[in-house]
Structure formats: structure tokens, C-alpha cells
Simulated assay, not measured.
Amino acid sequence: MPSFDVVSEINKPELANALHQANKELSTRFDFKGTDARVESNEQSLTVFADNEFQVKQAVDVLCLKLAARGIDLACLEYRPIEEIGGGKARQILLLREGINSDLGRKLVKQIKDQKLKVQTAIQGDQLRVTGKKRDDLQAVIAFLKQADAGIPLQFNNFRD
């Protein structure tokens, strides 16, 4: 029986490349000369450091341009407020949203069922599995999910006949 998975993932190598490019641009830009503007990453978030709130906003703009150029959807970022840290410095934390949480999964399952297509949808951890007898029904679900606003970027993997 044909099936596919609906997932929300971030391409980690492209993310690393975008961070490297953003840091390189921040170190060479004239308006950031002599500052400690940089972007650091850990497993679930990105942290933008700069000397003041304005420079943090500028650094986030540079980062967003680099992410978009590398094909990473900016909807996967959750922006936290800019914080003042000691020594006249500021930072902003950007959370990376990956996976389909259970609330969003239930919402997507309901929307798919409302389309009256002959498919079955199951939540499997942080992804959805959609199965059906006809390939055309599965393609209709993909088309529907592409135009639906899920709030996070969705990818479609493991299409099997």
C-alpha cells in the first residue's frame, strides 16, 4: 500500500554553512568593526550576541538572509525577546523548531480527514504517516498540506508504492 511521511526537519549541514557565512560577514562588515557580534549554535537554538539591541537586530537580519539563501525556511525559527546581558552587551535566542508536536499532528490529521480522501493518517512520534490505496489520493494530500498553513515548514519523505 502506498505511503509517505510528513516531517519537519532542518538540514543541519546547510544550517552550519549559513552560520559560518553569517559569522564571516559579521566579522568583516564595517558597522560591526571592533564589536563582538557573533552567532553561536547548540542543539536546539541559535544565540546572536552583539554590543547593543540595534546590532543584535542587524545580526539577526544577516543570519536570516544567509539561512534563506541556503534554502532553510525561516518559519522553523522561534524568536525570543532581546536580552541585555552584563557589560553593555545584548543577545537574542532563536529556538529551532523541528518535528511535529502532538497538538499540531492532531490538527493536521483532522484537516486531512476533512478533505474526505481515502487515506489513513497516523501520528508516529514527531512525524505523520499517510497511507492510501491510490497514489493520486496521496498526491492530493501532499498538495493540500503544501497550501495549508501549518506554522512550520513541512517536508514529505519516504514516498513508497
Rank of each mutant, 00 (worst) to 15 (best):
Q44Y: 10
Q44E: 12
L46V: 12
T47Y: 03
V48S: 01
F49D: 10
A50F: 00
D51P: 09
E53K: 11
F54G: 14
V56N: 01
Q58W: 04
A59P: 02
D61N: 11
V62C: 01
L63A: 04
C64V: 14
A69F: 07
I72Y: 03
L74E: 07
A75K: 15
R80N: 13
E83N: 09
G86D: 12
G88P: 00
A90Y: 11
R91W: 04
I93S: 05
L94S: 02
L95N: 12
R97M: 07
R97G: 04
E98G: 07
I100F: 04
D103R: 11
G105K: 02
G105A: 06
Q111M: 12
I112E: 00
Q115V: 10
Q115Y: 07
K118A: 13
V119H: 01
T121R: 01
A122E: 15
Q124C: 08
G125A: 06
Q127H: 15
L128D: 05
T131G: 06
G132I: 06
G132S: 07
R135K: 14
R135E: 15
D136A: 15
D137S: 10
L138Q: 03
L138W: 05
Q139K: 14
Q139D: 15
A140P: 02
I142R: 04
I142L: 02
I142T: 07
I142K: 09
A143K: 09
L145S: 03
K146H: 12
K146A: 08
A148C: 09
A150D: 08
I152F: 04
L154V: 08
L154Q: 04
F156E: 02
